[in-house]
Structure formats: C-alpha cells, structure tokens
Write a protein that binds this DNA or RNA. Structure first.
Length: 139
DNA sequence: GCCAACGTTGGC
DNA sequence: GCCAACGTTGGC
C-alpha cells in the first residue's frame, strides 16, 4: 500500500464535502497538471492519503482511501485528464499544520514543504506515521 | 493583497 | 526548440 496527499482549497472542495459523500466517495476531479495526474495513475485501490486544506487553514485534516483507480475525468472531454475516486476515512483529532510540518527536520523532504503547488503528492511511510501520530489518526 | 514559484502558451 | 509573456497557485 502506498501513501499520498490530496490538497484542496476548502472553499472549493472541503473535508466536510468529502465526508458528506460517505463510503460512495467522489472523483478527485479537476486536476489539470501532468505530474499530479501521473501520481494518480500510480494509485491502487486501498492506497491511503492525507486530505490537506490549503490557503487559510494549511493543515492535514483527515485521511482518505482510494476506492477506484484512474479513469477519465468526467468534468472534461479532454482525454488527457484522469482522476481517481476517494472516500473519507478518518478525521484528524488535531489537524497537523503546515507550520508544524515545516518545523520538523524529519519532514524537511516532504513535497508539501518543497513544492507546495503540487496538488497530488506522494508521502513516504515514515512521513505518514509521524503525521498520523500528531493528528491522532489510526493510520 | 502581494509576490515568488511554477507550468503553459505561442511567436519566432 | 527556445524563451518571453502570461496565468495560476498558495504561503506569507
């Protein structure tokens, strides 16, 4: 199983919106970036991801699970763009903030720290564990 | 609200 | 194929 991070502006699509979809989940659509798309193509059903709120909150607010592999993005006719489906898994008891992540040497290589604009990113098992502990998540 | 970083586009 | 111009994103 691999780990990922999904970033969203809460004003567009928030953790609460994701939770409201329940186990049926929802397409992670609207990605128009090749790097992000390529990461989604690598995902398998059962992979886990952090759900990150950008802009005002800047924190990991919960975990999600990949429930469908990459398929055409239904919001466009452009065949280049694909997306996976994800469902909300568990809310963070204490959201792990960007400030906290940046202050920890062990997380200095995270994509979130070094390429903040990439909306879909890989996360290493070590990074996953550290942030889960902070946020009170059960992995 | 500003600006740096990054990706994309289009003219040559 | 290069590069300047432009648009978008996201942290501050």
């Amino acid at each position: 199983m691999r780990y990922w991070l999904f970033k969203s502006e809460p004003s567009t699509w928030s953790w609460e919106d994701q939770v409201a979809k329940g186990d049926a989940g929802e397409e992670w659509d609207g990605v128009r970036n090749y790097q992000a798309r390529n990461f989604m193509r690598e995902m398998a059903v059962g992979d886990r991801g952090f759900f990150y709120h950008s802009q005002k909150e800047k924190a990991v607010v919960g975990t999600v699970e990949v429930i469908a592999e990459a398929h055409p993005d239904s919001t466009t006719d452009d065949e280049r763009w694909e997306c996976v489906d994800i469902k909300a898994l568990e809310p963070a008891k204490t959201p792990a903030t960007l400030e906290q992540i940046k202050s920890d040497e062990r997380l200095s290589k995270m994509v979130l720290v070094n390429n903040s604009r990439l909306s879909v990113q890989p996360v290493t098992p070590d990074e996953w564990q550290i942030i889960c502990e902070w946020a009170g998540l059960n992995r």
